[in-house]
Design a protein around this nucleic acid. Sequence first.
DNA 1: CTGAAAGCGCTAACAT
DNA 2: ATGTTAGCGCTTTCAG
Lengths: 345, 345
Amino acid sequence: MTKKKSKHPTLSEVAKKAGVGTTTVSRVINGGQRVDPQTLARVQKVIESLGYMPNQAARILKGDRTRSIGFVIPSIADPFFSSCAEAAQAIARAHDSLLIVLTTQNDAHAEVESVNVLLRHRADGFILAPGNSQSQVLRTLLKRVQVPVVTLDRPMEGMPIPAVVADNFAGARMATRHLIDHGYRRIACLTGEPTLYTLHERIKGYQKEIETAGLEMILDASIKDYRSAEYAVESVLAAPNPPDALLTLKNSTTIFVFEALQKLGISVPERVALLGYDDFELAATVRPSISVVQQPIEALGRTAAELLFSRMLDGAGAEKDRGKMVELHTRLIPRASCGCRPPQN
Amino acid sequence: MTKKKSKHPTLSEVAKKAGVGTTTVSRVINGGQRVDPQTLARVQKVIESLGYMPNQAARILKGDRTRSIGFVIPSIADPFFSSCAEAAQAIARAHDSLLIVLTTQNDAHAEVESVNVLLRHRADGFILAPGNSQSQVLRTLLKRVQVPVVTLDRPMEGMPIPAVVADNFAGARMATRHLIDHGYRRIACLTGEPTLYTLHERIKGYQKEIETAGLEMILDASIKDYRSAEYAVESVLAAPNPPDALLTLKNSTTIFVFEALQKLGISVPERVALLGYDDFELAATVRPSISVVQQPIEALGRTAAELLFSRMLDGAGAEKDRGKMVELHTRLIPRASCGCRPPQN
DNA sequence: CTGAAAGCGCTAACAT
DNA sequence: ATGTTAGCGCTTTCAG
């Protein structure tokens, strides 16, 4: 109401009011090197009184980094990705950068749009969990991107983009092996959307181990919600030669299947054992407790962010990581549902 | 390797290559109004071939909005806040804006720093879930903020900032009433950090209803992890006149307490009933299923974001919402742990 | 130690 | 319909 546009005070306003040049003010807000202590104090006082804050846009325009990175994931409500996000945000903060979260529901169009948004905002780099590594539009777009990119959880196969993933294949093999070691011989694998890289890899791991052991593969990839899980469990157990163990390949599937088993009154692990992929908060609390393959979720997010920053800071030397794939190890957490412990624990 | 700095192509480069003025290019990228179809096509072709993308920073510098909003929350791994974030991000996207997520672990210093970061970036507004509404630094800072702010889940008491919260007081009253109606007479309330607005309100609701019914208040606000939960459950049940019902006031507390009850082999609801605050994925699946007060989480995030945008778009007219407090209703989901259903369900 | 001045990429008068 | 030009707020040579 006093000035013309009552907006934010500018650097030159500070300079004028402090009776110094803009250069000096600039120096002050950038660490105060090479400035007379007297002037420095005076300028700081003016900054204080005016409530001045440097305008990022102007700095960026001068060619600086934007100090922001993008984080493009299917959903932020998904505990897997929200934990990754928490870790990534911590790394971003440590590098004095902002994390811009964009969600895509695994939709290729949304992914392209998100990347475009980040490009316009001149994000310094971004982390991406692509729903489908085959999307041509996305691949084409990514080829033109000038800033560092790191994929998380799912690589863009055949592209020179570093990826941070869990060892899905090995994890599923280990899980299958564990069930075999328990003496189970008819091990069914339950999952959803095998188009996702992670699930695809896990299915391959299951398959590999089953074949190695000379057993029969029993695969049902139709699970998308509780309904389909209940249906799948009923059908598979009603078959002539029903499975004695169930391997579920992702968190929601495990939970749906567990709910179905419970609802149908099927005793675990007596009638059928259960081993899930992805740990979850109540896995150790439900009865029976659920054995799972645990992914290093937090480490995935952290590693992806660290890798991204290392590439960003490396300048052009980022070549060294091109197409590099970091595989983090998963662990098997044995609990009661696979038969490792009495059902009461 | 061809040009000097091999950076992003600029608008004037496009103009030059297309043989037009910068204004024309500007018009093209802003909808192409008042441009000859011929030229428009030509310019678009050049844009395409150069892979040109407008530089947001330059636009912002011209005085435009930054088309980004801040989202400052304690943690993004917390399912409550990540669901809010998902909803807020959807609204932001609908308004063609970015969501910048900042986490604070409820630390006042981190909150102030986060707000400062957003201010420097000239975010168009932000949503904030303050850990402690009393923090003087934060209050002072917020007073100087020029852009719209909306608090989420926890208001800044006594400040002219609109708040979107759940009806914590009413929710806890309703829960307590429900237990009383079941015939329980010794109802213990278990919780953590009563400094948080939400918990404080819920405790007051519990207290109010207990007093109204002429019962004795039994409060333990010491729960912060599984250890303390187990300890609290043991002590409270070992007392001379132990409770016949437990009311837990937040999601993690409910889960810790449930785990402790299970571990200690205490039958629910026979020996002691349990009613929790916040629904969670397996609440209906564990045995017994847990009755809870369910918060409209997604609506909280959505409403906060909508309110923020309405204030942002309102220009100065945003006065109308000053200090307004939107209270969203919670629901009681009766399951087995309070005695509403046989333990098997 | 400090200041003047030249842009960074874009938009918006103001011309033509 | 389209070009010219003056900044937006800041950093950064280059001279004092």
